[in-house]
Design a protein around this nucleic acid. Structure first.
Lengths: 157, 157
DNA sequence: TAAATCTTGACTGGGTTAATCGGTTTTAAA
DNA sequence: TTTAAAACCGATTAACCCAGTCAAGATTTA
């Protein structure tokens, strides 16, 4: 049930950009902060650019910056875009369904469906903004609590 | 976030054995019902045997049978044993923790921890017996409901 | 004893992942 | 106008893991 390093790295890069919103950050700077090699980061950032999450400025003093607000960047969507469907099995995937000859009498499909729903539920309700502010859902006493603490920024100013 | 075919196959095999509790089922019979090649099944059943989930009877009329009651076979544990930790990242794993140089200031670890907790919660409260009777937890209106329907066998008899 | 069946270990082919590398283009600043 | 800093791009590689195959051996039952 692993997340690929590519997925992890994409999120790391987005977080760094989110921590420097409005600024342009060079690949080598991102590399330092994320411990990802420059060459590999290039690939990943390019992909994030094609996906529309970030924008780039070429040439000297160039670099990357977020193209969307952190609130608009959905973590589940990012992971799906970078490394494919969240579902643990093709038979339970909505976005990349694959038929299975056993399916009709399969006792496992409901389990995989439940796991898929569970993972989606957690990842799709989390945004980059939530990660930046460590505002997460949580498990408490056997129940999953959705976003206990959503700070109101207007009141904080 | 895929489950390996090996994990899926192990569960398929256990389900077939659970459907024939008390009987000895040959590898080739299991193969027919699960659509897994005999040679590959051999490997997987042997592993399940070493793990203590099943027992074998050699020679003519031999085969495999469950060694534990379906209620005692925890799906989360099976998957962990077959394909390693449930956690999406080593840094969030309890059973196979791997340190990460970024860890102290990492904004992702809480996310991976949440995902790990969530997956564990679903898989570890499901037993082979639950799968056989399709008695699953479920998501309902944004909340995760634990085991809505636990049949009381004494009353059903 | 023969047939059925599990046991064991070696092996292979393919796919994916995680990078690496070299060169090109663009841009800002000196 | 030169130069250096940076993004862009495509090809390639190295390693690993997964899925599955294969062959030979050991054990039991009929």
């Amino acid at each position: 049930m692993k997340v690929s390093s590519r997925g992890e790295y994409a999120l790391r890069a987005l977080l760094v950009l989110g921590q420097h919103e409005g600024q342009v950050v060079s690949i080598s700077d991102i590399s330092e902060k994320t411990l990802i090699t420059v060459n590999y980061l290039e690939q990943i950032l390019l992909q994030l650019k094609k996906l529309g999450y970030v924008q780039s400025k070429r040439g000297s003093q160039g670099g990357y910056s977020l193209r969307l607000n952190p609130e608009e960047i959905n973590i589940g969507e990012v992971i799906r875009n970078i490394e494919g469907p969240l579902s643990p099995m093709g038979c339970a995937s909505i976005t990349a369904y694959e038929p299975c000859p056993l399916e009709s009498k399969c006792l496992l499909k409901p389990l995989w469906t439940l796991v898929r729903d569970t993972i989606s539920h957690v990842l799709e309700q989390t945004t980059l903004h939530d990660l930046l502010h460590q505002n997460m859902g949580e498990w408490n006493g056997g129940k999953f609590l959705v976003k206990t603490h959503r700070p109101d920024h207007r009141r904080l100013m």
